[in-house]
């Protein structure tokens, strides 16, 4: 396989004055054209991971305390600000969850797109505006000529998210980070935006990190999946490995918590309890307090072990069926 576009090793993020990592030892690689879905619940560190890669952590109080993130062979985490600014919006771009708060309300959408084109490509204002028009057309905005001069508040939520996508893709980035890009949208609009993102990615061949809490979106978009819990990746694999051979108790619990669309079940099988607060994070496996398989060995942080090629799990009890006889007799 070709060299990875992005190689993240041991990324850790900490909040000033505490000793627990909000993102702990996160590692993954991403190749051109691939989509990695990072899935997990509120506070699992999925957004912080993306923000650290973009150099957008609210620092202070947050800071990267370890690891490296090689993008085209250069470490994003050590990069001087001017170099990072040259990359952001150009070679790597981000789409945020809430298009209303991430677009400038006082600027016409055409100018917002053109601004980044001019900044990174050094073209004339006229050429940048032409590029903005082309992008609006590519993301499927009807009557794009008249929308160039619209303000964000003139557009619906779905249209605003299309503008965000147009802006992110205007300079043909090699890496796109999308943080819950469809969460704020209605389901029929979500389907439009996901289809659009798939098409545009197929055309441009860019790699994508898609952050979501929705396993349906994961199944639909991902090549690879990272399941995060309380700041750590607990399971990593191809989308088929994660859905057809889930190994980590959290992954399984998350999937069984979701109501299925097929056969109705009498009762959802849940994960008990809540995520421990960052200040009360237990030593060892962070899922142990909610895990029905936990035992004394879980007081030690589990290593990532490979259960199949490219399928890694951080759990002492894996494979779960191996331990079942002892547990029943115990």
């Amino acid at each position: 396989m070709s060299a990875p576009l992005l190689d993240v090793k041991g990324l850790s993020v900490r909040i000033a004055g505490t000793s627990r990592d909000l993102v702990a030892d996160v590692s993954f690689t991403l190749h051109p054209g691939e989509t990695l879905c990072v899935v997990g619940e509120s506070g699992c560190g999925k957004s912080l991971t993306a923000l650290s890669l973009m150099g957008l952590l609210a620092s202070p109080p947050l800071s990267v305390t370890g690891g490296e993130a090689l993008f085209d062979g250069r470490d994003l985490l050590q990069m001087p600000l001017d170099q990072l600014q040259a990359l952001r919006g150009d070679r790597m771009a981000m789409i945020f969850q809430e298009p209303m708060t991430s677009l400038n309300p006082a600027l016409r959408v055409g100018d917002q797109i053109a601004e980044s084109v001019q900044r990174h490509q050094g073209v004339s204002a006229k050429a940048a505006r032409a590029r903005a028009l082309e992008m609006l057309r590519r993301v499927g905005i009807p009557a794009p000529e008249s929308r160039l001069d619209a303000y964000p508040h003139n557009l619906s939520g779905g249209m605003r998210q299309r503008v965000m996508i147009a802006m992110a893709l205007a300079n043909d980035p090699a890496l796109l980070l999308a943080d819950e890009p469809t969460t704020a949208l209605d389901v029929t609009i979500q389907a439009q935006i996901l289809a659009l993102m798939r098409d545009l990615q197929a055309q441009s061949g860019s790699a994508m990190i898609l952050i979501t809490h929705d396993l349906g979106v994961v199944a639909e978009m991902a090549d690879k999946v990272a399941v995060m819990y309380a700041g750590r990746i607990v399971e990593f694999g191809t989308v088929a490995q994660i859905f057809e051979d889930p190994q980590h108790p959290y992954t399984i619990g998350l999937m069984s918590s979701m109501p299925t669309l097929g056969q109705r079940v009498a009762r959802l099988v849940t994960i008990p309890g809540v995520v421990p607060q960052a200040s009360q994070m237990p030593p060892g496996c962070r899922f142990a307090s909610r895990c029905p398989f936990a035992n004394a060995s879980c007081a030690k942080t589990p290593d990532m072990t490979e259960v199949a090629t490219g399928h890694r799990v951080a759990c002492w009890q894996v494979p779960l069926e191996a331990g079942i006889d002892q547990r029943v007799s115990a």
């Binding site: 029929t188 349906g216 199944a219 639909e220 999937m255």
Partner: peptide, 24 residues
């Protein structure tokens, strides 16, 4: 039918969510 078609199904290889509806 359009609402149902737009639901992303959490299973690999399941039918893709389709946008049967244009516009808002």
């Amino acid at each position: 039918a359009a609402l149902i078609a737009a639901i992303p199904v959490p299973q690999v290889g399941a039918r893709k969510a389709t946008a049967k509806l244009e516009g808002d």
